[in-house]
Simulated assay, not measured.
Amino acid sequence: MASALDHVAWEACLLEPRRDRALESYARRKMGMPVPSIRYFTSVPWLARALIDLHPEYGLLMHLDQHTADVLTLVVSQENSCRFCYAAQRALLWAQGMSEARIQRVEQNLSRADLVPRTVAAIAFGRSQSRVGPAGAQEALQALRSAGFSDDEMKEIAFTVATTDFLNALSQFLRFPRVHWSRCRNRCTCGCSDL
């Protein structure tokens, strides 16, 4: 199924990718699929590993449910207007087993008026943090408390939002080519299948 993102003009990436088979294999084992963007960070291995290890879906959340974290990553990527990260988040959800139809339903649900208060509060917090950072957190934080989130859940919401902002900022700065993600979703014709 074609996406509107397939018709967006992509700018050239600022860095040339370099192969590091060990790092690429690590990324593939951890994420369960090839990660061509890792090649842009091989000169800074700790950053490359952070790009892989900091995803909330890899056992880093102990209190926040994964559905809320998934919604937050989509909302924050939308809020950042990061088409690269938004495309990557969609691809990751798909790779984790979420169907395209379900991803589209999640996207449509983000603007529904009848969302449960907890989801609305989490979305408001994510948008607030992405727009204005910690200075605007108090009102959104109070909404999280009012919606019944525990302190531990609120910390994990903040972690999910901050991590997504961080990963989005890196991708926007470097201008990753989305074509890698779309090809990986369609049987890896991007050259990464030889990992």
Rank of each mutant, 00 (worst) to 15 (best):
residue 90 R to L: 08
residue 108 Q to D: 15
residue 23 L to S: 10
residue 100 E to K: 04
residue 140 A to S: 05
residue 74 L to F: 10
residue 187 R to N: 15
residue 6 D to I: 06
residue 148 G to I: 00
residue 28 R to D: 00
residue 150 S to H: 07
residue 125 F to V: 03
residue 19 R to I: 12
residue 29 R to C: 03
residue 143 A to N: 12
residue 37 S to Q: 03
residue 181 W to T: 02
residue 51 L to T: 07
residue 95 A to V: 00
residue 88 A to Y: 07
residue 166 F to Y: 11
residue 65 D to C: 04
residue 56 P to M: 06
residue 32 G to Y: 02
residue 74 L to H: 00
residue 157 I to D: 01
residue 184 C to A: 11
residue 9 A to C: 09
residue 183 R to C: 01
residue 13 C to F: 03
residue 113 A to K: 14
residue 146 S to K: 11
residue 191 G to T: 09
residue 194 D to R: 04
residue 47 L to G: 10
residue 68 T to I: 15
residue 170 L to M: 09
residue 193 S to Y: 04
residue 136 G to E: 14
residue 145 R to I: 03
residue 7 H to Y: 08
residue 19 R to H: 15
residue 69 A to M: 11
residue 59 G to R: 10
residue 130 S to A: 15
residue 71 V to C: 10
residue 75 V to S: 04
residue 46 W to S: 15
residue 73 T to A: 13
residue 152 D to A: 15
residue 105 R to E: 15
residue 88 A to M: 13
residue 54 L to M: 11
residue 116 V to C: 12
residue 174 L to Q: 07
residue 47 L to E: 08
residue 186 N to I: 03
residue 144 L to M: 01
residue 53 D to S: 12
residue 85 C to S: 09
residue 110 L to E: 15
residue 100 E to H: 07
residue 87 A to T: 07
residue 105 R to G: 06
residue 20 D to K: 06
residue 99 S to T: 15
residue 53 D to F: 03
residue 75 V to K: 04
residue 119 T to Y: 05
residue 140 A to R: 09
residue 143 A to E: 05
residue 111 S to N: 08
residue 176 F to K: 00
residue 55 H to T: 08
residue 32 G to S: 08
residue 129 Q to A: 06
residue 36 P to S: 09
residue 150 S to V: 11
residue 51 L to I: 05
residue 52 I to S: 00
residue 98 M to N: 07
residue 145 R to V: 00
residue 184 C to M: 14
residue 42 T to L: 00
